[in-house]
Design a protein around this nucleic acid. Structure first.
Lengths: 106, 106
DNA sequence: AGTATTGTTGGTTATATTGTCATATGTTCA
DNA sequence: TGAACATATGACAATATAACCAACAATACT
């Protein structure tokens, strides 16, 4: 494994890490339906503005979303739609696990 | 957001978290080429056996890989091939970022 | 100018993750 | 049986993350 390979895996892991949080995952899925401002997120989930802002900033730094300031508000939008297909795959993992678990109980 | 939804996002995040580590990401990709035992991984990366074993156990607990003991060795294999398509998407994120970064330097 | 609104950033504390060492478990083979 | 090998597990220290609060910045409105 070259030094370059290592950096590539670190970069990929960083993107995954950005997604690997319930709130950020939810946000990402929400953004797939269209752009949203920070205030809209803050309204729905029970969290501080600063918490929401930081989560979005992590997604932005990972290259998953982008932001645009319009007036007082900052609108975030999904930059990488292909991520959503991935989510289907993740869900399939969970379903498999649920089935395996159910089988154990029988 | 219902209680059930919440749990679903937590479950999905757990799977992503399992993948969100350079070593585990690499392992997952390696396993896509075929099963491997712990010793094979330990040989390639510079890490303790226990470290390798723990990483694999995290992937297993997340439902990403499965293990089978044959003789003295434990063989791990990828349980969810669809994950690899996701990796392409992750790479596209990185490429976009690299391009954006390059653009800044011009 | 002054104030309310919308976000961001820094500090702090609580919690989670990672890697390493030592130890325990299970398997094979002499 | 017991020695050697392959792996798992528990304890621990170092580091990273997350959430909250307070302070700050930018925009809009009066």
């Amino acid at each position: 494994m070259t030094e370059n390979d290592k950096k590539l895996y670190e970069a990929k892991a960083k993107v995954l890490k950005a997604l690997a949080h319930p709130t950020r995952l939810w946000m990402t899925e929400q953004l797939s339906k269209g752009e949203k401002c920070v205030c809209e997120f803050a309204e729905v989930i029970q969290a501080d503005f600063s918490t929401v802002s930081k989560h979005l900033s992590i997604l932005k730094q990972a290259g998953v979303v982008e932001d645009e300031k319009r007036g007082k508000q900052v609108y975030y939008s999904l930059k990488v739609p292909c991520l959503l297909k991935f989510m289907d795959c993740i869900e399939s993992v969970i379903k498999m696990q649920a089935q395996a678990h159910a089988a154990l109980l029988q």
